[in-house]
Amino acid sequence: MSTETKKRTVKTINIDADKCNGCRACEVICSSFHAAPRYSSNNPARSRVRVVRDPLRDIYIPLYAGDYTESECMGRDKFIIDGKEYDECGFCRTSCPSRDLFREPDSGLPLKCDLCDGEPEPLCVKWCLVGALSVTEREVEEPAEETKRGELEIGLESLARRFGADKLLDTVAQITKGR
């Protein structure tokens, strides 16, 4: 095993929900930045950050779009913090079939926050003048991978892990014999 490490920058968006004023400027600029051509349109329904906002219950949660999942969780979770009850899956970032959040309104394709790739800082942070959103960067050291593995290699390895190497070999042999 190599002991070499390499540096990677991790960006963290700090969400100070107490400072959120519920204005949704983050949604506006996000959807505008990601429009094609850039800034040509805006539509909060396409935004990769959404403010879960319920003023009468004092709930203000800017929520970022995370990974896509094909299938929803078996259960649901509901948080109650300081007596405030948050919606089911209220803090979950996933683009999930259980809800219409973080999916393109027309095509249904999933959306994911890319931290405004190419910009000096995520634009939601820039547009949040009330200071609810800020970004910090830190460098983490990670062991360098010796070789970059290809798709097939990764796929085969996971199949081997799941079904066992023997079964995998047998199956491959069977399929190839048939040809």
Partner: peptide
């Protein structure tokens, strides 16, 4: 006053719950 709040896409906090 629970919180100072805003209208759509505006950083001014002219309202309150």
């Amino acid at each position: 006053r629970t919180r100072l709040i805003s209208c759509y896409n505006c950083p001014m906090k002219c309202g309150a719950t």
